[in-house]
């Protein structure tokens, strides 16, 4: 353990703090709730309710999920208009059609067009379509992203390298309750002759959160 409770590097704002009262991320120390999780886990194992092996297997299952699942969904939507319509209307049912998990939450798919760009956040915690994208990236859980992308999304997107025209409407989706969100990016120009696999390869995790857009060269 190191003794720098205020040294939360990577999350300094670089200018006078615009969010007074916002606590820094506490991912470098064992927090109260982390200690509690360990204590509860050890008790459950001790009492024979769960086994360490069962927990490890669940973690393994979680780690096996990756954004490749989501990319497969997006690529199919790009080549199959009927699938796309269903994905936008009844997201979970569309996943089942592809042989994927329906998922524990209702999926809301939001479509990027020439006029609209969507970006997803969970300001309250870190809600994320994990069954489709795997674990969220650390920045998605950071207080910096969560507090800033709702009030200055264009500035945050520029930091990700995405500079949007004023003619494009930016829609932020705050995942505060029972919905989980997937951004359906616009199909990049120059991919008209591509097959499904090749298309899926350019759909990155960030494109499906909405902080990036796919390109034919990526």
């Amino acid at each position: 353990m190191h003794e720098h409770p205020h040294d939360h590097d990577g999350h300094s704002h670089g200018h006078s703090d615009p969010h007074p009262g916002v606590r820094p991320d506490a991912d470098d120390t064992l927090s109260y709730y982390q200690v509690m999780e360990i204590a509860v886990r050890e008790l459950l194992i001790e009492k024979g309710v769960l086994s360490a092996d069962a927990i490890r297997r669940e973690v393994e299952k979680m780690d096996a999920r990756s954004p490749a699942l989501g990319a497969q969904v997006i690529a199919r939507a790009w080549i199959d208009p009927a699938f796309k319509a269903k994905l936008l209307e009844r997201g979970n049912d569309a996943l089942v059609d592809l042989g994927l998990e329906r998922g524990p939450y209702r999926l809301v798919v939001v479509e990027n067009t020439a006029d609209v760009h969507n970006v997803v956040v969970c300001t309250l915690c870190s809600c994320y379509p994990r069954w489709l994208l795997g674990l969220p990236p650390d920045w998605y859980k950071s207080r910096n992203y969560r507090s800033r992308v709702v009030r200055e999304p264009r500035a945050v997107l520029r930091e990700f390298g995405l500079d949007l025209s004023e003619r494009v409407t930016v829609r932020v989706h705050d995942s505060t309750a029972n919905m989980r969100y997937l951004v359906l990016p616009a199909r990049p120009a120059g991919t008209e002759r591509w097959g499904e696999q090749q298309l899926a390869a350019v759909v990155t995790r960030d494109c499906m959160i909405g902080v990036a857009v796919p390109t034919a060269s990526s």
Partner: peptide, 11 residues
């Protein structure tokens, strides 16, 4: 700072 058309959707 942005377009007047920009929105935030919240559940």
């Amino acid at each position: 700072v942005g377009s007047r058309a920009d929105t935030i959707d919240v559940e």
